[in-house]
């Protein structure tokens, strides 16, 4: 479980990305100026609650923002050295699947129920390889074998309804990886799965990553998945990344009050607590964001300054940033309490 240290070359770089959805009533700032980068063989977790813009971030990276309401209004998405926002729709078709691909949350709906698994796999494979039937068949079998599907030759003729949820999600994974993309975005891929199946799937992803040097963006609401899977974490709140850093930094020394609250409000398996820490209120609507820091109305350390302007980004550690005024040297309000990590962390 060590982060991939050797591969430091950046495969994906996102700079000040803004994706808005324009509705009749309001402008929904689903993604409002986020920046991050992703190195080869690395897993970046994007964590946030529903409606924080994490799925819209994923769709933006594939340029699949729902049209015509949604639009990427600003920013850069540099994938393999090229800004994909400058590409035409035709060029994008070559990028999707081959350079960047996606695994969706619900395996029930991401496969077409009227075609066999083999059919759907071959179609996906056909994008990268145009070959005769028998070699396509063996490629499909290989793809299924890679995701640990038992007896792949027989599974090819199955329809999605004949498979369990875990199996289907593996097939979805096989399809996403069929053209050997450098980056895979996994949008809550295990939320619909049972815990023991989830563990199988997460381990599988890790194995494939170790083999192929795939970079994974793991979108989730669950810090447990992050702890299990990711090398680095970006925490999103109301359309912004409020904190990002190395996974151990974030878990041991979360700086932003929101990150602290999220980590603290999850009950622990390893220790019993009398009372969970909880923050009041709920996230703001992306169509009606407060001025200043978006977490301010729920923040226990809030001061006037927080309502005036969105906080600067402060560097806490190499690669560990957080947007919070309380991290400023001149901070006048209540200092953020020191975070007490869950017991047993020492090892």
């Amino acid at each position: 479980m060590t982060a991939v240290q050797t591969a430091t070359d950046t495969i994906l770089e996102v700079n000040d990305l803004k994706t808005y959805i324009f509705t009749r009533a309001a402008t929904v700032k689903a993604v409002d100026g986020i920046s991050f980068n992703l190195r080869k063989g690395e897993t970046l977790g994007i964590v946030g609650e529903s409606g924080c813009g994490k799925t819209m971030t994923a769709l933006s990276l594939l340029r699949l923002v729902p049209k015509p309401a949604g639009r990427i209004v600003e920013g850069e998405i540099v994938l393999n050295g090229e800004d994909i926002l400058q590409k035409s729709e035709d060029e994008m078709r070559d990028v999707r699947g081959r350079q960047i691909s996606m695994i969706l949350q619900d395996p029930q709906t991401s496969l077409n129920p009227v075609f066999t698994i083999g059919n759907q796999l071959r179609e996906a494979l056909g994008i990268a390889h145009r070959e005769n039937k028998s070699s396509m068949l063996s490629r499909a079998v290989d793809a299924l074998r890679k995701v640990n599907v038992a007896a792949p030759e027989r599974r090819l003729d199955d329809y999605p309804h004949q498979m369990s949820g875990g199996m289907k999600q593996r097939v979805v994974g096989a399809i996403a990886m069929s053209c050997e993309p450098g980056v895979i975005i996994a949008d809550e891929p295990t939320t619909a799965l049972d815990v023991t199946i989830q563990l199988q799937y997460l381990r599988l992803l890790k194995e494939i990553q170790a083999e192929t040097g795939l970079a994974i963006i793991f979108i989730t609401h669950d810090f447990g998945v992050v702890a299990r899977m990711c090398d680095r974490v970006a925490v999103m709140y109301a359309g912004r990344i409020i904190e990002q850093g190395d996974v151990r930094d974030i878990f041991s020394r979360p700086a932003h009050p929101y990150t602290q609250a999220l980590i603290n409000s999850v009950p622990k398996l390893e220790q019993s607590v009398d009372r969970l820490y909880s923050i009041d209120g709920q996230p703001p609507l992306l169509s009606n964001l407060p001025e200043g820091c978006r977490f301010a109305p729920r923040c226990p350390y809030v001061s006037d300054q927080c309502y005036e302007a969105y906080p600067q980004s402060y560097t806490l550690n190499e690669g560990h940033y957080a947007d919070c005024w309380a991290l400023d040297a001149d901070w006048q309000g209540t200092p953020i309490e020191e975070f007490v990590p869950p017991t047993g962390t020492a090892g």
Binding site: T196, G224, V225, A227, R228, F251, L269, E270, G344
Partner: peptide
Amino acid sequence: AALPSHPDLIREDIVLQGE
């Protein structure tokens, strides 16, 4: 299989196969 609350707390003493 339960997800850990810290990256250092991953312990897998039994991993189930199959469904």
